[in-house]
Nucleic acid binder design. Structure first.
Lengths: 195, 195
DNA sequence: AGTAATCTGGCACAACCGTACCAAATTACT
DNA sequence: AGTAATTTGGTACGGTTGTGCCAGATTACT
């Protein structure tokens, strides 16, 4: 169900943002009708009024979050300085696009969410189209960035580097004190011939 | 709680195997007290009698499944013929160790579970020690296998190849008709200089 | 044989969950 | 202004969850 009135649209959006926040803080399982309503300061029934099902709500939250991240990536591309694109800084940029901006001491948690999204897609086929779209746009963005940085690469190479990062992250998650970003950085630096 | 009587030990084991089966069929969320009891043909309360909590039960199931897979890997190593270890067959062997033996039309589902386990570790710190142990043994097994195959590699290279496979799998899960094993095979073949 | 430890299994509880319902309030439209 | 569409929010229902409880059956031990 979509909203038909301005105020209704605002309410709907508040629910989406609340759901996205819960998604970030606690993963998919944290996105429940009651939790979303409470976080948005709205009654429980508003969630079922604006969204046909919980899956609908989850989908909207994921799309909101994904779009925001893509916007972040595009902004980073726009302010890219081709001069300083050879070294560590460039690797950090790629990592920021793939793992999101560093989140300090909550970084492992933030990174985890991203991979929960990926894996959860396996059990939630209804998320696949959206995930495919977001993932495709991210790949394109990375291609652009490599090109802008004077290191043009092919589609295959990008997919290889992404796989390397993703694999490093996933394997880092089982460490006692996981630092997936550092693990990914190590892999990426080696693969790109640095150090 | 551990069993103190032979029959009790058998019952406990039946619960573990039932839980492991549910884990394979439906992922972590499918492992519930009632489901496990029903699958084992035992009353609900037996699950709380032999396991202090659901987490305990899940841990035992994961350990059982992990051990079985490691045994499978060791068997494959034992029957390894160093003569035919250069080509496609060797790649399939490595994939079998990392993704489990091919499961036909249920392969994507089976592979998915393995990565749910990895990612779920992030949200379930109590699984980390076990996962680390299993993962470590798997790494060691792979090192042995590369050595036996006349392609000795270092720890770093193994970790790189594993990351490549894991990343390929994770990214394949969002396809409309996911075939993570094929995607991983492609990556691995390229990285090992085949084709 | 008899006492103690272990095990069994039926049941109940409180806390969630997704979602349906519906009368009242608000807003849009003619 | 008045009718219709939309939105609101309180409530309730049926289901599932983890887990506690406990009288009785079974098993181990002296």
């Amino acid at each position: 169900m979509t909203a038909a009135t301005p105020k209704g649209e605002r309410r709907r959006q508040a629910l989406v943002e609340a759901a996205a926040g819960l998604l970030v803080d606690g993963g998919f399982d944290a996105v429940r009708h009651r939790a979303v309503a409470e976080r948005a300061g709205l009654p429980l029934a508003s969630t079922t009024y604006y969204f046909d099902s919980l899956d609908d709500l989850v989908t909207a939250a994921l799309e909101f979050h994904g779009r925001a991240e893509l916007e972040y990536g595009k902004a980073r591309l726009a302010e890219l300085d081709p001069e300083e694109c050879g070294g560590e800084a460039f690797i950090d940029l790629v990592l920021d696009l793939l793992l999101g901006p560093p989140a300090g001491d909550r970084d492992a948690e933030a990174v985890l969410l991203r991979y929960e999204r990926l894996v959860a897609t396996g059990r939630r086929p209804y998320l696949r189209p959206l995930m495919r779209k977001l993932s495709g746009e991210l790949h394109g963005l990375l291609l652009d960035i490599f090109t802008h940085a004077g290191q043009p690469v092919g589609q295959e190479r990008v997919e290889e580097l992404i796989a390397l990062v993703d694999g490093a992250v996933v394997n880092a998650l089982i460490e006692i004190s996981p630092d997936p970003r550092a693990a990914a950085r190590r892999m990426l630096a080696k693969a790109m011939g640095l150090r």
